[in-house]
Every structure is written in structure tokens, then in C-alpha cells.
């Protein structure tokens, strides 16, 4: 596959491991010969607040931040967070929205209703995928922190990367038991329909 540029927006909560996800995916793409640029959030914003990162790859790369209305894929590792970044979805509704079913509510604030979220998502995209990433991570992999890798396993089908490519990248990041857990999470994500 050849891309001028492919833009992924990743959003979620600080502490969910978004930076690790970027590194694993970015490393695999670089090894495969792609030019990649990411932007990461560090510092205080790590802790619990909303975090948005970008990963872009292809031959026509410029900025670490994309234009609004131009993302190819948006990933939300917490459901309601997707509402924050819909401005990056293309107006022609072609952007793939990958949403974890994980909900983290806040005390004294009403969590957006299922109906509302679905309505808004349908206004913005014809390609919506809900992934029960935390359920799979807790029940099948027995580790909540592996949820992002379940998502990574799922989105592999849309990317110019093989299972081997990501496995190699995971091996650079993890060792021993952690590696085992993440390889299992990757498999579970790939097997999701």
C-alpha cells in the first residue's frame, strides 16, 4: 500500500498508555520503511485529563498536528473522549472511528447517553467500530493495561502492517511476562470480528 499521508488521531485519558501505543505503532511503520511523525503529551497532562496524540505516516508528511477534517482514523480508548476530536473527521464521513466501549464517568457530571453518542457518530462517519477492548483485556488477557494492544490488534486490518511487524515492535518494548500478555492481547484484537 502507498500513502501520501495517513493520519491517525488517538484520544483517551492520561495514564491509559497512549504514548506507548504511538511508539509501538510508529516503530513498526518506521521498520517497514515509512516516514512517520507523532506528537506526544507528557508532563502534568498525563494524569487523568484528556489526552490527544497524533500519528501520521506516508511520503508527504509535514506537521505533527493535522488539519481538522482530514484524519483517516480516529481511535478513542475511552468512549466519551471521541466527542472531543470529531473535528478531525472528514466531512465526507470516510474517517474510520475506532471506539473502545470503556466508559469512565466523572462524579457529578452526566455521562453522554448511548443514543446521543451513536447519533453524533453517525453524523460524522459511515465507518464506526466499537471494540470491547477493556472487557477482552480483563477477561481474556487478565490485564486491563493490555486494552490498547487489543485495539492495535483490531486496527491492523486497516494498516499496511503484518502481525509480525507489530510483534517485533512489541518485543522491543516489552520483556518476559509483559510481552506474553501483549502478544495475547494483539491476537485477541486481530481475531475480533
Amino acid at each position: 500500500m502507498i500513502f501520501d499521508s495517513y493520519t491517525i488521531v488517538i484520544t483517551g485519558l492520561g495514564g491509559q498508555g497512549l504514548v506507548s501505543l504511538l511508539k509501538i505503532l510508529g516503530n513498526a511503520l518506521v521498520t517497514k520503511g515509512y516516514k512517520v511523525i507523532t506528537s506526544e503529551t507528557h508532563g502534568l497532562s498525563q494524569r487523568g485529563g484528556k489526552v490527544t496524540c497524533f500519528l501520521r505516516f506516508g511520503d508527504m508528511l509535514n506537521a505533527p498536528i493535522p488539519m481538522i477534517g482530514s484524519a483517516d482514523m480516529i481511535i478513542a480508548t475511552e468512549k466519551s473522549c471521541i466527542l472531543d476530536v470529531l473535528q478531525y473527521a472528514r466531512p465526507n464521513k470516510s474517517t474510520k472511528l475506532i471506539i473502545s466501549s470503556y466508559e469512565k464517568s466523572i462524579i457529578n457530571e452526566k455521562y453522554p447517553s448511548e443514543n446521543y453518542i451513536l447519533k453524533v457518530l453517525n453524523e460524522n462517519s459511515d465507518n464506526i467500530y466499537f471494540i470491547p477492548a477493556t472487557n477482552i483485556a480483563v477477561k481474556l488477557v487478565k490485564n486491563l493495561k493490555a486494552a490498547n494492544i487489543v485495539i492495535l490488534g483490531y486496527i491492523l486490518r486497516f494498516l499496511p502492517l503484518s502481525e509480525k511487524d507489530i510483534e517485533n515492535s512489541l518485543k522491543q518494548q516489552f520483556l518476559g511476562k509483559d510481552l506474553e500478555i501483549n502478544l495475547k492481547a494483539l491476537k485477541e484484537g486481530q481475531n475480533l470480528q
Binding site: 497532562s45 494524569r47 487523568g48 485529563g49 466519551s80 466527542l83 473535528q87 453524533v120
Partner: peptide
């Protein structure tokens, strides 16, 4: 695009 507004949860950073 910028004009569209959604019900967004105001998540503050926490300890």
C-alpha cells in the same frame, strides 16, 4: 467543522 459543538465531559487532570 469548527462550528459543531458536542456535549463534552469536562475532564480535569487528577492526582
Amino acid at each position: 467543522i469548527k462550528g459543531k459543538k458536542y456535549e463534552i465531559l469536562g475532564r480535569l487532570p487528577i492526582l
